[in-house]
């Protein structure tokens, strides 16, 4: 599958409020793409439409040329982390991954591999309700990686992580991008993205205001943070 995300002319209103106005951009494989903008700029809406959760009023959101809902085993095509806290508290972390694996026809051994990889093997059989924010975030990443997908879409992946978690997450995302996967992350952490992301898409009020390599942004505005503040003023 072609690991490219294509957003074309995406429009969406919630009542009288226009959330997306002709949102258009492309995410290419082989690098981390940062998706930044103020709260309410349309990042989450774009991601939800991309993942088939919300219906667009117009435009298309395609992953490898296909709509999300047309994917047969979606977790093997796209790994997504939207809200790491969305868990059934009394279900163990392992069982959370187990049902996800079963829904895609993946073996239970894949679940244990992932638990090791995200460092949750020791607490995997405890209730997820007792997990810290960082542990929930790691579980969410494990769920996203379960199907070994060529495309990763992560909403605020650094939320709740401790410093060691930051390092771990950075390595993980870099490695995946280097393997030739498309990695789209939304974040407010400009310093983090400046080092991590090869490309940045800045959105404001439902449309793209900048779409450029991180290096080019830094050269023009001095830093990613300045670029962001300048562009979304």
């Amino acid at each position: 599958m072609d690991a490219t995300i294509d957003i074309t002319g995406l429009r969406k209103s919630y009542g009288p409020t226009a959330a997306l106005r002709e949102m258009t951009f492309t995410v290419r494989p082989g690098q981390v793409t940062g998706f930044v903008g103020p709260n309410g700029a349309g990042k989450s809406t774009t991601m939800r439409i991309l993942l088939g959760l919300d219906h667009p009023d117009g435009g298309t959101a395609l992953i490898g040329g296909r709509r999300y809902r047309d994917l047969t085993k979606p977790l093997e095509a796209v790994g997504a982390l939207l809200d790491g806290t969305a868990l059934q508290p009394s279900r163990s972390g392992r069982n959370h991954l187990l049902w996800l694996a079963q829904s895609q026809g993946l073996p239970a051994s894949r679940v244990d591999e992932l638990l090791d990889e995200v460092g949750l093997a020791g607490v995997a059989r405890r209730r997820a309700g007792g997990y810290s924010l960082g542990m929930r975030q790691r579980l969410g990443v494990a769920a996203a990686l379960l199907g070994d997908p060529p495309v990763l879409i992560l909403d605020e992946p650094f939320n709740g992580l401790d410093p060691a978690g930051f390092v771990w997450m950075r390595d993980l995302l870099r490695t995946r991008a280097r393997e030739g996967r498309a990695v789209l992350i939304s974040s407010h952490l400009m310093g983090e993205l400046q080092d991590l992301a090869g490309h940045v898409i800045v959105v404001d009020r439902g449309r793209v205001v900048a779409d450029a390599p991180t290096r080019a942004m830094r050269e023009r505005y001095g830093s990613l943070e300045s670029a962001y503040l300048e562009l979304t003023r």
Partner: peptide, 14 residues
């Protein structure tokens, strides 16, 4: 209530 329905729909979009 937990928002888990999104995860469910990501796994089973139909």
């Amino acid at each position: 209530r937990r928002g888990l329905i999104r995860t469910t729909l990501l796994a089973s979009p139909h």
